[in-house]
């Protein structure tokens, strides 16, 4: 197993995945995968279930080590997991301050909660929060440390369509504030089109295709080029008919 080491960044990249291999037993889940995320870029990762999206995200988060190749990420990074993973025994505010130190930690956490629209809910227990609210607390916890790279693993998958659209608006607003690179994993093609600067599709352990999305906000909602992109993505996923 290779070890983590701090090296000076070779380029201004949000993240650099170079020729990475990850095996579980005989199964090769990531097969010489390459992926570069530019500074402040939002990349959406699409792929069928079980293709290795979470595996890649865990490598980028430093929760797992590759069997081959290199992963280079900023030291200041944060991850939002598929479930909210809040500590049930801490109130919302203390969940956000988990990784913070210093006298202004509490104020930073308050600001982060206000940013995700949860001002006034600082003292709520996780059991008192709705699914969307809990996920927003998790988002606040990730953003409060001002990360250079944010990894999101299907963060809105468990939410209803209306709440999900609100969360998309929130992500767009947060991108104005936080100049972080983001990698967002999703199953949802429409979510990908709504948010991405670039959409990459994974299959057989590699990044298969990459689509840059340069549509305006309105065009992302409804336009001919949006439908073309959607059709292309569905074809990449093997869902075209």
């Amino acid at each position: 197993m290779s070890t983590a080491s701090v090296t000076p960044a070779r380029q201004q990249a949000g993240a650099l995945v170079d020729d990475v291999v990850r095996r579980f037993g005989d199964r090769v889940v990531l097969d010489h995968l390459d992926l570069t995320i530019a500074d402040e870029e939002l990349v959406v990762l699409l792929g069928p279930s079980g293709c290795g999206k979470t595996t890649l995200l865990r490598l980028l988060a430093g929760l797992d080590r590759p069997d081959g190749g290199t992963v280079e990420v900023p030291a200041r990074r944060a991850i939002v997991f598929q479930g909210d993973r809040l500590l049930p025994w801490q109130r919302a505010l203390r969940n956000v301050t988990l990784g913070l130190h210093g006298p202004d930690a509490e104020q930073l956490a308050r600001d982060a909660l206000a940013e995700v629209g949860l001002a006034g809910r600082e003292r709520a227990w996780p059991k008192e929060l709705s699914g969307g609210e809990a996920q927003r607390v998790a988002l606040a916890r990730a953003l409060v440390s001002d990360p250079e790279l944010v990894l999101l693993d299907e963060p809105f998958a468990a939410l209803d369509a209306i709440t999900r659209r609100r969360m998309h608006g929130l992500v767009r607003a947060l991108r104005q504030e936080h100049h972080a690179a983001m990698l967002l994993v999703t199953h949802d093609v429409d979510e990908a089109i709504a948010l991405a600067d670039r959409i990459v599709v994974m299959s057989q352990g590699r990044v298969d295709t990459s689509h840059s999305v340069t549509l305006s906000a309105a065009d992302r909602e409804a336009s001919v080029s949006r439908e073309d992109l959607r059709a292309a993505l569905l074809a990449d996923l093997g869902l075209a008919n």
Binding site: A61, G62, L63, A78, I79, F81, G83, R85, L87, Q90, R94, L98, G99, R141, S145
Partner: peptide, 21 residues
């Protein structure tokens, strides 16, 4: 263990992990 893992990703140290998680 998922909460322990999450705590590591927030940059919290061992003391935080023990006292808060």
């Amino acid at each position: 263990q998922r909460l322990v893992e999450m705590t590591h990703t927030t940059g919290a140290g061992r003391w935080r992990l023990v006292t808060r998680v």
